[in-house]
Amino acid sequence: MPELPSPVDLAIPAFVALVLAEMLVARMKDRRRYCPRDTLTSLGLGLGSTVAGILSGGLVFALALWVHQFRLFDIGWAWYWFVAAFVLDDLAYYAFHRSAHRVRWFWASHVIHHSSQHYNLSTALRQTWTGFVSLGFLFRLPLFLIGFPPAMIFFVAGLNLVYQFWIHTEAIGRMPRWFEAVMNTPSHHRVHHATNARYLDRNYAGVFIVWDRMFGTFERERDDEAPRYGIVRNLGSFNLIWAAFHEWVGIARDVWAAPWRHKLGYVWREPGWSHDGSRLTSAMIRERWQQRQEKREGGEWTKPISSSSEADRAAVPPPAGSPSAATASR
């Protein structure tokens, strides 16, 4: 077995240099692209994620080796197996990433990466502390079962992560058309980080945007709709610990308060789901946005949106189905 380097470790000096270069560009073009407190939070979360990875990495690798002994094929170390591993690992990443937005347990870990209201290279380094707890590594296990050596998969996964760094920027507009068609790009990934109803839960790709095109989750960035970054319910805080754990706390509170038969729903259903319909999922947000668009196009948007709009000014926003409800958890 060859000794493979860690692509991420090797890339760290380049990450630092490129963040610095992007800051200089921001100073010249638009200072609002960076915010010192946000940058410190992102980089602090990135450092914490590195520590968490060191603590859990041995266990994940041991699990991969254990699964690998049941492999279907003996895959060697020829260069073309690296290519195949890279492509299949990216498909596994797509499945993981889509689940990370559609299952609250996985989202609780992944939300950290989306919790910045900025979109710059420091956002790329804002990574989870709880990846091991959320079991995200399970999505790569089929690759070991097929027969890819664990060291090869972790190597190409590192390359995948390094690729994803440069797409977290507003400094690059669009890449050439052929590149945008195949690869994940800053434009595609800006859509992914946006909370605009049109853009919510789209473009899950890691390296190859073709997965989104194939599985119907692709959305093009529009020139007439700038992305608004962050999460549906932005934190309004730069506290590192809260950023790292807030959704886990939310799950615990919801499970505690929910009726018994609905408790698990707050773990495995999509973010924003609630047993009483009092919150909004991304699908519900998109539906309301579409309704509003239709009303505006019909010239009716200035009318009250519900016959009960003025019923109780002091009431808690009513549940889903009523246009005034908006206690979304994300």
């Binding site: 200072r31 946000d38 209201q117 900025h118 962050g230 932005n234 934190l235 309004g236 730069f238």
Partner: peptide
């Protein structure tokens, strides 16, 4: 919240 707005 820094250079952005957060809402409730």
């Amino acid at each position: 919240a820094g250079a952005r707005l957060a809402s409730r």
